[in-house]
């Protein structure tokens, strides 16, 4: 087992992982959520994160990568502190999802999978996020914002910028 002090994760997360792996009939079942929680804390799945997770589950790093690269929320490069995910799938598209996405692009000066120079924001065009009846919808990290108009975009960014300035934790 990974030595706590060696872990790339905080003590809290390490403790949580220790519980997580013990929860299932099979240790490996913890893998997918573990990767997501690890990313939440570290920002992305670095080599160190993958090695640590592999060690905790007791599988090879290759195996972890095989799984991790399958899931689209998982990333292998840092993103912004606030990752803006704009749904442009059908229900959102019909109600202006692309206009919202363009507005974010303009406001942030970055494109799909871009990261703002200050590292506060990254932008992503995503598939349906399960808010179709309240379209167009976005997620900033895990927060939903729905029924949007392009006019609301600057306000949303402002809200998170302020949070970032306060050193607020990820939402």
């Amino acid at each position: 087992m990974t030595n706590e002090t060696m872990s790339v994760f905080s003590t809290e997360l390490s403790a949580r992982f220790d519980k997580l792996v013990a929860k299932y009939p099979v240790r490996r079942s913890a893998l997918v959520p573990m990767l997501l929680y690890a990313q939440d804390e570290v920002g992305y799945l670095s080599d160190a994160v993958i090695a640590d997770v592999a060690d905790r589950i007791g599988i090879t790093e290759l195996d972890v990568r095989n799984v991790a690269t399958y899931y689209s929320m998982l990333r292998f490069k840092p993103a912004g502190k606030y990752n803006v995910q704009v749904c442009t799938n059908i229900s959102c598209m019909l109600r202006g999802g692309y206009e919202i996405f363009e507005k974010f692009q303009d406001e942030l000066g970055i494109g799909h999978k871009g990261v703002s120079t200050d590292g506060v924001f990254s932008l992503e065009e995503v598939e349906c996020i399960g808010a179709c009846c309240w379209a167009p919808a976005i997620q900033v990290n895990y927060d939903f914002h729905d029924d949007l108009t392009p006019e609301q975009v600057p306000g949303i960014l402002e809200q998170y910028r302020a949070k970032a300035a306060q050193g607020g934790k990820n939402a």
């Binding site: 090879t60 790093e61 290759l62 195996d63 990568r65 095989n66 690269t69 399958y70």
Partner: peptide
């Protein structure tokens, strides 16, 4: 040996070495 894996998904899928 388990040295080969499948990574990414869909048309981007590749075979990857350990």
């Amino acid at each position: 040996v388990w040295a080969l894996g499948i990574q990414n998904r869909g048309a981007r899928a590749v075979i990857a070495p350990n």
